[in-house]
């Protein structure tokens, strides 16, 4: 029962989705969107699991003082600050004691984490109690900001957007820009071509790079441009199609094996 029921579910829903494809009727469409909505909603519950895992791994690191454990605090504080910012908003013109609130909250978390680790539990619990009193007091008496989990007011919170724009975006953009450096080292790796296949790759890469290079100081020979266009339109098309057919068949075969319960590796039974 424990083992078989999930596979029965897989078969039922898989078979349904297969048959649904041929039924244009409204009710079939209805069930289709219904099921897709379900998967999305389940995904959010899973995200809670994910955050829990992130929290646990970080706390474990701190607990056992593993290498680089200090940075786990950075992760945890980033996580909690962002959640708090995402669910609060400014009511009046100023933020009032909001920053004190956030700091008190971080202090509370810090003390709580330490309380679960350190030997002198009483001290840390006491400290976290103080922090809790402070933050509850501010939350209760300070009217210049509010908590909103009904509306997405928090997403428009300037602090939240600042964090997104000045912390997340620059890091993200830089990581993406690192690609340019890595591509250089990858190109160098490709240059040390050891066999026929790698040389083929390299030659066609160079032809296309010459073609799309905007800084070409000398007039690009017409032949290179035409050759590069031909490469992109002809062999490229052929190879892409061969790969797509292969991938398509792989996906179809794997899906079929999953639906029929032949492939069970994804449930931990291979």
């Amino acid at each position: 029962m424990k083992r078989q029921l999930p596979f029965l579910l897989v078969f039922i829903f898989g078979a349904f989705m297969t048959i649904q494809y041929y039924i244009p009727h409204e009710s079939s469409e209805f069930v289709y969107t219904f099921l897709l909505d379900w998967t999305m909603i389940i995904g959010i519950f899973a995200l809670a699991l994910g955050i829990w895992s992130l929290y646990q791994v970080s706390v474990e690191k701190i607990k056992h003082k593993k290498e680089n454990w200090v940075y786990s605090y950075v992760t945890l504080f980033g996580l909690f600050i962002m959640v708090v910012l995402g669910f609060t908003f400014k009511v009046g013109d100023s933020w009032g004691l909001y920053s004190v609130f956030v700091i008190a909250l971080m202090a509370f978390l810090y003390c709580l984490i330490n309380a679960s680790i350190a030997k002198s539990k009483g001290l840390w619990f006491g400290l976290s109690g103080v922090a809790l009193v402070v933050l509850l007091g501010i939350a209760y008496f300070d009217d210049s900001w509010g908590v909103a989990f009904m509306t997405s007011e928090g997403l428009r919170n300037t602090m939240f957007t600042n964090f997104a724009d000045f912390v997340m975006t620059p890091i993200l953009a830089t990581m993406f820009a690192l690609l340019a450096f890595f591509i250089a080292s990858a190109a160098y790796r490709a240059f040390r071509a050891r066999n026929v296949l790698a040389s083929l790759l390299l030659v066609s890469a160079i032809i296309v790079m010459l073609r799309f290079n905007p800084y070409m100081p000398f007039g690009l020979p017409e032949l290179i441009a035409e050759l590069s266009n031909w490469l992109m339109n002809v062999p490229n098309l052929a190879a892409q199609r061969a790969i797509v057919i292969g991938i398509g068949l792989g996906i179809v075969a794997t899906s079929l094996k999953v639906i029929l319960g032949i492939e069970r590796g994804y449930m931990g039974k291979g």
Partner: peptide, 13 residues
């Protein structure tokens, strides 16, 4: 580490 924490919370919000 900051990026990991902030982006996880961002995705959650």
């Amino acid at each position: 580490h900051l990026f990991v924490g902030v982006s996880a919370a961002y995705a959650m919000c």
